[in-house]
Amino acid sequence: MTDVAYAGTPQAGPAFITARGLEKHHGQTHALRGVDVTIRQGEIVAVMGPSGSGKSTLLHCLAGVITPDTGEVTIDETQISALTEDQRSRFRLTRLGFVFQFGQLLPELSAEDNVALPLMLAGTRRARALVQAHSWLARLGLEGMERRLPSELSGGQAQRVALARGLVNAPAVLFADEPTGSLDSLTAERVMETLTEVVRNTGTTLVIVTHDARVASYSDREIFIRDGRVTSPALEGAM
């Protein structure tokens, strides 16, 4: 199922996300050391590596959450590393989606409000945003749970709500950072099946950061990262 490519080279099609020569320091730590990555539209890519290898830093650079010390990132012809912080925030809000390890739902907000949040933050009135939120919740099998608080949902349900929130603004790219890290294997499998099915149906590009080979197996391609550098799969296999 998985097609492994070396050094982040896409198999075919035009490049949608391009990162060139990314360098990033966190204090004394050299988190990224000249990373080049290319991802095509609609592709599902897993970024793999051990803890502290720099994979989350890479994801945050690709998503414009942080700016690299050197190098540039382009998504759909927009060079995001050249944007101001406010412009990057706006870009993330309207073009990108995110799913995190613990779902990271706002505990005070109901499932529907959590899902509608990106739209409301982008300026959509709540009444309109809820229509789309309900649609996504239904699509992900959460009908009837719109008014529930995160504390009233199971781990798998909460992660699906988080997934709905990541997709509600019809993002061009969905970034997922250890999306099944807090789930048992069966629930994780279901969440990954739902996630990949939805992004394939919508043509959304998916970038998953994980150190779980089972999660990575759902991707089209894996990018290995160690000590801030993209490495070869052969080397990773040997290690």
Binding site: A63, V65, E85, D86, R88, S89, R90, F91, R92, L93, T94, L96, G97, F98, F100, Q104, L106, P107, L117, P118, L121, A122, R165
Partner: peptide, 16 residues
């Protein structure tokens, strides 16, 4: 802070 970090990550404007 975890909640607000998340919101900033998904693109919340500073003014928000």
């Amino acid at each position: 802070k975890r909640t607000f970090s998340l919101l900033q990550l998904i693109g919340m404007h500073r003014n928000t």
